[in-house]
Measured scan of single mutants.
Amino acid sequence: TLFEALYDYEARTEDDLSFHKGEKFQILNSSEGDWWEVRSLTTGETGYIPSPYLAPV
């Protein structure tokens, strides 16, 4: 399942991933609570992002 960003987000740590509203992601790991490890389909980068900022496509 692909997810889309509902809002912009600016990374706060080196493990976070900055992204823009509308960017699409592949979920790599969603078992860590509200922070999911994802791969951006736009940039190819991986990192953690807050799951409340995402919605299924």
Score class of each variant (00 low, 15 high):
residue 19 F to W: 05
residue 57 V to S: 07
residue 39 R to A: 04
residue 42 T to H: 11
residue 21 K to G: 02
residue 23 E to K: 00
residue 1 T to L: 14
residue 18 S to N: 06
residue 46 T to K: 09
residue 52 P to C: 15
residue 13 T to A: 12
residue 8 D to C: 08
residue 48 Y to W: 15
residue 18 S to I: 04
residue 38 V to P: 00
residue 49 I to K: 00
residue 12 R to A: 12
residue 54 L to N: 03
residue 6 L to Q: 07
residue 21 K to S: 06
residue 24 K to I: 15
residue 8 D to Q: 03
residue 40 S to W: 02
residue 1 T to A: 12
residue 12 R to S: 12
residue 17 L to T: 04
residue 18 S to G: 07
residue 17 L to R: 03
residue 44 G to N: 07
residue 6 L to K: 08
residue 47 G to F: 05
residue 3 F to Q: 03
residue 14 E to P: 13
residue 2 L to V: 14
residue 56 P to H: 06
residue 38 V to E: 01
residue 55 A to F: 09
residue 19 F to L: 04
residue 28 L to G: 01
residue 23 E to G: 01
residue 46 T to I: 14
residue 11 A to I: 02
residue 51 S to T: 07
residue 54 L to M: 07
residue 39 R to Q: 08
residue 50 P to M: 10
residue 3 F to D: 00
residue 11 A to W: 02
residue 18 S to R: 04
residue 25 F to L: 05
residue 54 L to Y: 04
residue 55 A to C: 07
residue 34 D to C: 15
residue 27 I to P: 02
residue 29 N to D: 12
residue 21 K to F: 05
residue 19 F to V: 07
residue 34 D to I: 13
residue 53 Y to E: 05
residue 25 F to M: 04
residue 19 F to D: 00
residue 7 Y to P: 00
residue 42 T to I: 09
residue 55 A to N: 08
residue 35 W to H: 08
residue 47 G to N: 01
residue 35 W to G: 03
residue 3 F to Y: 15
residue 50 P to Y: 15
residue 5 A to P: 01
residue 31 S to W: 09
residue 4 E to F: 11
residue 43 T to G: 02
residue 3 F to K: 01
residue 6 L to H: 04
residue 43 T to E: 01
residue 36 W to Y: 07
residue 20 H to T: 13
residue 12 R to I: 12
residue 13 T to F: 15
residue 11 A to E: 02
residue 31 S to L: 10
residue 1 T to E: 13
residue 8 D to G: 05
residue 50 P to H: 14
residue 15 D to L: 13
residue 45 E to A: 13
residue 35 W to D: 04
residue 25 F to S: 00
residue 52 P to H: 15
residue 57 V to I: 12
residue 36 W to A: 02
residue 2 L to P: 04
residue 45 E to V: 10
residue 28 L to P: 00
residue 54 L to I: 10
residue 2 L to H: 07
residue 47 G to D: 00
residue 45 E to I: 10
residue 48 Y to I: 10
residue 28 L to H: 01
residue 9 Y to C: 07
residue 38 V to R: 00
residue 44 G to T: 02
residue 5 A to I: 03
residue 7 Y to V: 11
residue 22 G to K: 03
residue 56 P to V: 08
